[in-house]
Computed example of a mutant assay.
Amino acid sequence: MAAKTLDLREVPPPERHPKIHDAFEELDSGEALELVNDHEPKPLFYEMQAEVDSFDADAYEVEQRGPSEFVAKLPKA
């Protein structure tokens, strides 16, 4: 699965979700958006699940790599 990476740790919080939605929209089916974040993006998961039909919630993954580094993969169906 091809992935585009978006590092959000330096992005101001109000700008994160719009940036994520724009990047996700640009993906082709079967690709994934990989997010590097300073916290677990659980609210984003629920937002994507509720609002984005092409978000493959069943294939969503998140891994904590450090105390303030989480990497999440948001796959597009």
Rank of each mutant, 00 (worst) to 15 (best):
A2F: 09
A2D: 13
A3D: 06
K4D: 05
T5D: 05
R9L: 04
P12K: 14
P13S: 14
P14G: 04
P14C: 06
E15T: 00
E15H: 12
H17G: 01
P18K: 10
I20H: 11
D22W: 05
D22M: 06
E25H: 13
E25T: 13
L27C: 06
L27R: 06
S29W: 08
S29H: 10
E31M: 01
A32H: 04
A32R: 10
L33T: 09
E34H: 03
L35C: 09
V36D: 07
V36T: 13
V36R: 14
H39P: 09
P43T: 12
L44V: 15
L44W: 05
F45D: 03
Y46S: 08
Q49I: 00
Q49D: 05
Q49A: 11
A50P: 02
V52H: 12
D53V: 00
D53G: 13
F55P: 04
D56F: 01
D58C: 00
D58Y: 03
A59D: 11
Y60C: 00
V62M: 02
V62G: 03
E63H: 10
Q64E: 15
Q64Y: 02
R65A: 13
P67V: 04
S68W: 08
E69L: 15
E69K: 12
F70D: 01
F70Y: 15
F70T: 04
A72Q: 04
A72E: 05
P75I: 02
P75K: 08
